[in-house]
């Protein structure tokens, strides 16, 4: 049994304002690394980070891989396809294998909500667990990079907080699309609220969660009513597999009512920005011309993803004990 507990990043609800700001501030300093002639720091030399991906996600995996490599960690990519998992190995046996190989951190993407929590707390291994997206539950590093991008672009519209730190106070952010199934939406609702922003989730009734009473946000069925009052709009990806589940009447109708068209984007305040976690369905949830417009910060989100993940890896692995996360297992 482990006597000292390791910290993990499983959910944005584990982060208080101080911890969230520490990650964003650290990421801000680390963002400079990508401008350095040598994009590498020796900080995590000799540490092993395993990318354990049970679901395909090239973008998230390479972002974590770039982050770990810029900090000089050794990276092992473990994808479920073509591995022992496809031969029926359980999560427990995979964890025991990774522990035996000396993993210091495991970045896990899994289709089942709660898999990262199980991995972190089942006492199978002694490594930090970072949730890289689990089912319809959470995707905390996506929310952190979104918060980072909001702070970067909307600094002039953020209200100074009482204690002098710069969060997202005073901002109004709309999250639009399949909120029901979106781990990006869940993680963002909690994190943005922690940082002081007002959040409105916008979805058709079939894709709005039934029980949002304990969500710190407002809800709306009308994108047109919300857009004139936002500082940022986050468009969620429409999952094609949901098309057949009775959630959408048709792609065309969804696009007409909830797609971010050029005309709709024009109703937003001049300073408002457009975000998307990627990969985009151009022409469905977002029109191409909006995605490529000056309002769009989608490419910045990708770049910021590396900095934010470097910050998380550094704060979890860099010291003798983790500087964040839910330390008490």
């Amino acid at each position: 049994m482990n006597t000292h507990m390791k910290a993990h990043l499983l959910s944005t609800t584990d982060l208080d304002r101080e911890a969230a700001l520490q990650i964003l501030d650290t990421a801000e300093e680390l963002a400079r690394v990508s401008d350095m002639p040598i994009k590498k720091m020796p900080t995590l030399r000799g540490r092993t980070v395993v990318n354990l991906f049970f679901e395909d996600s090239t973008r998230t995996r390479i972002s974590f891989e770039a982050a770990a490599k810029r900090l000089s960690a050794d990276v092992i990519n473990f994808s479920a396809k073509g591995s022992s998992v496809s031969k029926g190995e359980s999560l427990k046996d995979t964890a025991l294998t990774l522990a035996a190989m000396g993993a210091d951190a495991v970045v896990i993407r899994h289709s089942m909500s709660g898999a990262p929590h199980r991995l972190a707390h089942a006492d199978w291994m002694d490594a930090h667990v970072i949730n890289a997206g689990d089912g319809t539950h959470e995707h905390p590093t996506q929310a952190l990079l979104d918060a980072f991008t909001l702070r970067q672009h909307l600094g002039d519209h953020i209200t100074a907080s009482a204690e002098g730190s710069t969060g997202l106070d005073g901002l109004h952010v709309a999250i639009v699309g399949d909120v029901l199934h979106s781990r990006v939406a869940r993680s963002n609702v909690h994190l943005l609220n922690t940082l002081g922003a007002k959040v409105t989730v916008v979805a058709p009734p079939t894709l709005m969660p039934l029980h949002t009473d304990n969500w710190p946000c407002e809800g709306s069925y009308s994108l047109d009513e919300v857009l004139p009052n936002v500082d940022a709009v986050m468009m969620l990806r429409v999952q094609h597999e949901r098309m057949d589940g009775g959630f959408f009447p048709s792609a065309r109708e969804y696009s007409q009512r909830y797609g971010l068209t050029v005309q709709r984007a024009a109703t937003m305040p001049d300073h408002a920005i457009v975000m998307h976690p990627g990969p985009m369905n151009r022409g469905l949830e977002i029109e191409s011309r909006v995605a490529d417009s000056p309002r769009s910060v989608i490419v910045d989100q990708v770049r910021n993803g590396v900095s934010v993940r470097m910050a998380v890896l550094y704060l979890l692995l860099g010291g003798s004990e983790s500087a964040l996360g839910d330390g008490a297992a």
Binding site: T26, Y314, G318, G319, S320, E321, A323
Partner: peptide, 9 residues
């Protein structure tokens, strides 16, 4: 670094 908790940058 490994002797103390991770520090702010």
């Amino acid at each position: 670094l490994r002797l103390k908790p991770a520090r702010a940058l």
